[in-house]
Amino acid sequence: MIQVYNRKTNKYDTENVAGEKYIKWAYESPLGKGFVELFIKRKFFSKLYGNYCDSKFSTKKINSFIKNFNIDTDILTNDPSDFKSFNDFFIRKLTPEARPINKDKNILISPGDGRLLAYTDIDIDSLIQVKGITYSLSELIEDNPIANEYVGGTCLVLRLCPTDYHRLHFIDNGVAEKSNIVKGNYYSVNPTALERIPKLYCQNKREWSIFHSENFDDVIIIEVGATCVGSIVQSYEPNKKVARGDEKSYFKFGGSTTILFFKPNTVNIDDDILIQSSFGFETKVNMGEKIGEKFN
């Protein structure tokens, strides 16, 4: 059972996990673990399922998914019957009113919908995956000089579930460099897997880029793929100015994670998020929502 902090009610909600039985079998049973290592973590498995989700045959999954996970169809830009495949639905766009963006330049907004953990004054050689399991920033991006610039900074980990809106947006005005691709596996990013696979983020396929933000200095933005994620698609044009709230990328089917790194003395994360993170609880946030402020 995964519990996530709800900022609106000041209570914990139990997450309705897509494929929960499969995840527990795959990462907790001896047989399942064997299948993960031999088959499920491999690119061809996720690509095969991704191809199915791109096909017209997958449309039959849409209505049951909407019903089982209580997807709000009133905020979609398309009617559910208009989608040509499950992936077409999965990367659905929302109306602007559904995700209002805080335009105050001193406010840090969430880049997407998901469950957020925040860490400050970070040790880049011992970043927290879960309690007792760590990884390093240099391993994650495979670039030591850049990693060293973020010693003592802030790390945000935004976990997207299959039920979430799966498009990511820029947190500020600025310019993003070209995305760097790091090949890897396709483990699940569900907490069940994170508790059992050492350095999972460093093992999975990922893409990262430097975002030259107008108000928060240079930010490392990392998209981590996961089981059944057909692909990570970059929507932006490298080295061209973007505005706060512009779309950056999207994930095709599957859970996934976005990790942001800020340099020291650039941001102050909201207290409720920091407190819950210290307790080991993720905080549910939506794209465009305030999660912090510019450091003064």
Rank of each mutant, 00 (worst) to 15 (best):
I273K: 04
F45K: 05
S188Q: 08
T283E: 09
M287R: 12
S179M: 13
N106V: 06
K43C: 02
G174Q: 02
L274R: 07
E20L: 12
S110I: 00
K21M: 06
F86D: 14
A18F: 15
S213K: 01
G153W: 10
F216K: 01
H212S: 09
G184S: 09
A193I: 05
I146V: 11
T154F: 09
R167T: 03
I122P: 08
L194F: 11
T283D: 07
I197Q: 13
F170M: 01
T9L: 14
K103D: 10
Y52F: 15
E97M: 05
S188C: 06
Y187D: 00
D143N: 15
E37D: 08
Y236T: 05
Q203Y: 09
K60M: 13
V4G: 02
L117T: 06
P238H: 09
S126R: 15
C155H: 08
D72R: 08
K105D: 05
V229T: 04
R42K: 14
E149H: 11
G34R: 05
R42A: 03
E247M: 11
I269S: 03
Y150D: 03
D172I: 06
V151F: 08
K41A: 04
S249A: 15
P145A: 07
I40K: 00
F69R: 00
G255S: 11
G114N: 04
S55T: 04
S55A: 10
T73N: 11
L94S: 07
K43G: 02
N102S: 13
F261P: 00
G34I: 12
K183V: 00
Y201H: 11
Y5P: 01
I273F: 07
R159N: 01
V229W: 05
